[in-house]
């Protein structure tokens, strides 16, 4: 790991080099048998159980398939910003990638089904060992992106 003191929110779900957060991508596996893209590195395909998988790094851009707005803070334990403000949460179809869930960092009124978004990795919280945990969210992308 080239960034001492940083860890991914879960192994195999982000590209390995965490030093430059702008260069971190969501990662996983693509199945060579059924073709499905899976968020998170796997040893078998969640869809067809095949062991024939290849590592995948996913595009940082995508389209909102559907969304909701969380009006209340989620139950503990959470690491959401204080003070609480309502925030959109969406299923996002990554370009040529899987559908993933993520918070969209913007005013709730500005999101819609079909909106374009871009990945943003950040230090989400500090874990029990004192490491900075790299997590992800999305932010609105220019429509031309």
């Amino acid at each position: 790991m080239t960034a001492p003191g940083r860890v991914p929110f879960r192994d195999g779900f982000l590209t390995r080099d965490l030093a430059d957060l702008d260069a971190v991508h969501l990662a996983g596996s693509t199945c060579n048998t059924c073709g499905i893209a899976l968020f998170g590195e796997r040893h078998r395909c969640e869809n067809c159980s095949s062991r024939d998988l290849r590592p995948a790094v996913f595009a940082p851009t995508g389209t909102i398939f559907t969304y909701t707005v969380q009006r209340y803070p989620p139950p503990q334990p959470h690491a959401v910003p204080e003070p609480w403000t309502p925030r959109p949460l969406a299923w996002i179809d990554l370009d040529k990638g899987p559908r993933v869930m993520g918070v969209v960092d913007c005013e709730p009124e500005t999101v819609a089904i079909g909106s374009r978004v871009r990945l943003r990795c950040e230090i989400g919280w500090i874990d029990a060992e004192g490491c900075k945990v790299v997590s992800y969210k999305f932010e609105p992308a220019e429509q031309s992106a």
Binding site: F9, T68, Q70, P74, H78, A79, W91, I113, G124, S135
Partner: peptide
């Protein structure tokens, strides 16, 4: 939990939208 993806109703809300 940390990222706040744990409000059960949000999953139904996403389908509803």
């Amino acid at each position: 939990c940390r990222m706040g993806m744990t409000q059960n109703p949000q999953y139904w809300a996403l389908n509803a939208m």
